[in-house]
Design a protein around this nucleic acid. Structure first.
Lengths: 232, 232
DNA sequence: GTCGGTAGTTGAACACGTTCAAGAAGGGCG
DNA sequence: CGCCCTTCTTGAACGTGTTCAACTACCGAC
């Protein structure tokens, strides 16, 4: 309905633009304040003041307060990738690889649990460019899906040929589910989310293995057909 | 309807309080404007003006603009229950009962797809009393879970004894998943959501039946243990 | 050097959700 | 009726995210 005007995101533009320093300053200040005070308690005026710029200047670089969240996403995704590297180097079996990558994701997010939880609502809004399903966040999303592709590629697991191309996205979807649980997880240290990962991974592992069985072939195909249909 | 018997003891019954009329007026006006203009485009000032009251008066009855959404939830739940009745009367098999109740839920929500989608973000915030998992919405939630209990109770399906007590809540969770998909569903008439229901129900049906197999007993138990652990 | 255009920066102004001190309306009781 | 207490109602005022017309800094062209 209400189409946003084309945002000058400077996709492949030179990062040497004059304002790049200011952009990073504002972003870093915002991230710090989000962590210190939480998302709702951090006002745009406070961000601007702490960064030593005018309020409007922040809006020159970031379309809205919500857009600062997307910056957080991108940053988290990069950290997740880095944190997952040792696991991908070390493990060979599918299960441990998946578990390791999932745990790495939660590891990265844990310091931000307090404020991440409060802003994940914005991510759930379908019309928002912040939705993990939106076109605007297709960059970080694809990177995340690729990460789960690596979980698969490097593993010794044998996967049904038809399932294989769909699996990375399905694993990413499972990861989204883990995050949804984590966001609501009030157990100390979010230990329950850890239990969810450790409990769900063997089940997923078994499911992937079972999908190759001839007896279950019709079901596998049925599921895959449904998924293909539902894809946007 | 407007006539009421002599009210002698108004001990703890706020339903007969003086302002009940005003409360309903504000609620109905808000619902109408939400449908007409969408959630974000409907201001509290507009609601108050259309209802012919002061802004602060709306806040006397509803703690915030978001709280008006909860009113929408409760109303939708009641309509869902009513719309599901014919299905529960007619169908006996588990699959058709489940499919019918799921379709009934979407039927009820369909007229509000435009604005429901934009406010579902608020429901996703864990700290908000509007979260479907929160204590504040335990009333409508329990009613919804009970509805899926009826899907099971009235059916001819034989369910694993250990799974049975967990199943209503699991089905409700699946329903939440359907709604999450529906919210993001941009296909005309949300036909894809209908396909999701029709595709997923047979799978759930088969899964429930399979859970009784001796071979799968360990897996069933493993899943149930995990679920019990993760429960809040 | 200075001119002109782009990139960057400013802060007052706007609309919104929300709060709150003050008042009005009702009803029980003498 | 007059009094008091609770329930309800008011609208100005506050802090917020966001916008925008005006302004400044920079840089290449001549």
């Amino acid at each position: 309905m209400t189409e946003q005007p084309a945002q000058t995101t400077t996709a492949g533009d030179p990062a040497t633009a004059r304002g790049e320093q200011t952009r990073q300053l504002i972003r870093d200040t915002a991230m710090r304040l989000f962590r210190e005070r939480g998302y709702a308690q951090t006002t745009m005026r406070a961000i601007a003041q702490e960064a030593g710029v005018a309020v409007g200047n922040a809006y020159y670089y970031f379309g809205s307060k919500d857009h600062l969240i997307q910056e957080f996403y991108a940053q988290s995704q990069v950290e997740h990738r880095a944190a997952a590297q040792p696991v991908l180097d070390r493990e060979e079996a599918f299960g441990p690889r998946l578990a390791g990558v999932l745990h790495a994701g939660i590891d990265v997010l844990t310091p931000s649990h307090g404020f991440a939880a409060t802003f994940f609502k914005t991510a759930a809004e379908p019309t928002s460019p912040l939705s993990p399903f939106s076109a605007e966040s297709s960059g970080p999303r694809q990177a995340a899906i690729d990460l789960f592709g690596e979980v698969l590629t490097g593993s010794t697991a044998k996967v049904d040929a038809e399932l294989r191309p769909q699996l990375p996205e399905l694993l990413w979807l499972a990861y989204m589910g883990v995050i949804l649980y984590w966001v609501h997880d009030r157990s100390p240290g979010q230990t329950k989310t850890r239990q969810l990962i450790d409990g769900a991974v063997p089940l997923i592992d078994r499911l992937v293995v079972l999908s190759r069985l001839r007896v279950l072939r019709p079901v596998t195909r049925q599921v895959l057909d449904l998924i293909r249909t539902l894809r946007h």
